[in-house]
Simulated assay, not measured.
Amino acid sequence: MSNDVPGRSCPPRRALLAGACAVGVTAALAGCQTYGTAPVAAPGGPAPAPDGSGGTAAPDGAPAPALAALADIPVGGGKIFADEKVVVTRPTAETVKAFSATCTHQGCTVTEVTDGTIVCACHNSVFDIADGSVRGGPARAPLPAANVAVDGDTIRLA
């Protein structure tokens, strides 16, 4: 049977199928994209103190700037430091933790710390404040840990 029918303006069936396959393959490949996570500290960030005290120091040897006072981080909650790309949490009164503030799903900055969780409002991923593990949402990888040091009542990047 021929597709050359006088007065017919439809494309041949083979051309339609080829076009449909190309669209399907393109859509499937777009769904296979992967996303990385941003590093927690930028190059040139805080370095260990040269005196071996275990504290932190800026590249010029001065102490790393304070992120917050210990009292600024509520027990059972936390605080996001977007400029430093870190979220500091306090799961218990005796424990201070820090994680990358960059969501492992698609790289948005997390937006809130509430009810024992770190929330990314971009796609509703939720992470645990104690270990950064995924509690819900499309994220599959935990938030990477970041290093902080508590120096008396001051929290600094480590």
Results as ranks from 00 to 15, higher is better:
152 G>Y: 01
114 T>G: 04
90 R>Q: 05
120 C>G: 01
128 D>M: 02
4 D>M: 09
81 F>Q: 08
26 T>K: 08
137 G>K: 04
38 A>S: 14
107 G>N: 09
148 V>Q: 01
53 S>M: 08
155 I>K: 03
154 T>S: 11
87 V>Y: 09
80 I>F: 10
69 A>C: 02
18 A>G: 14
49 A>G: 05
21 C>L: 15
24 G>H: 08
4 D>C: 02
51 D>G: 07
121 A>T: 12
30 A>K: 10
55 G>P: 02
80 I>H: 08
35 Y>F: 14
144 P>Q: 05
66 A>I: 14
75 V>I: 13
140 R>H: 11
25 V>P: 08
21 C>V: 15
43 P>F: 05
47 A>D: 05
123 H>E: 05
39 P>A: 13
120 C>K: 02
23 V>M: 14
74 P>W: 01
151 D>F: 09
56 T>K: 00
145 A>E: 15
151 D>H: 02
64 A>F: 06
13 R>Q: 13
59 P>H: 01
66 A>W: 03
145 A>N: 10
44 G>Q: 12
43 P>A: 10
143 L>F: 07
86 V>K: 04
68 A>N: 01
48 P>C: 00
33 Q>T: 14
97 K>V: 12
66 A>F: 05
21 C>W: 13
156 R>F: 00
97 K>D: 10
20 A>M: 11
91 P>S: 01
156 R>C: 02
53 S>D: 08
58 A>Q: 14
31 G>Q: 12
120 C>H: 09
21 C>K: 08
123 H>Y: 05
149 A>S: 12
24 G>R: 13
108 C>H: 11
37 T>W: 09
123 H>Q: 14
4 D>V: 12
131 D>Q: 09
70 L>I: 06
93 A>L: 06
102 T>P: 01
45 G>M: 10
46 P>N: 11
17 L>M: 09
12 P>F: 06
94 E>M: 01
30 A>Q: 11
34 T>K: 14
94 E>V: 04
110 V>T: 07
89 T>V: 02
158 A>F: 09
97 K>R: 15
150 V>S: 08
76 G>E: 01
35 Y>L: 10
103 C>R: 06
32 C>S: 14
122 C>P: 02
145 A>T: 12
77 G>T: 11
68 A>G: 04
99 F>P: 02
2 S>K: 05
130 A>D: 07
62 A>K: 15
53 S>L: 03
28 A>E: 04
93 A>H: 00
56 T>L: 06
29 L>W: 12
128 D>Y: 03
27 A>G: 10
109 T>L: 15
25 V>Y: 06
57 A>N: 07
105 H>T: 13
4 D>E: 14
2 S>L: 10
23 V>Q: 02
97 K>I: 03
3 N>G: 15
67 L>K: 08
33 Q>M: 12
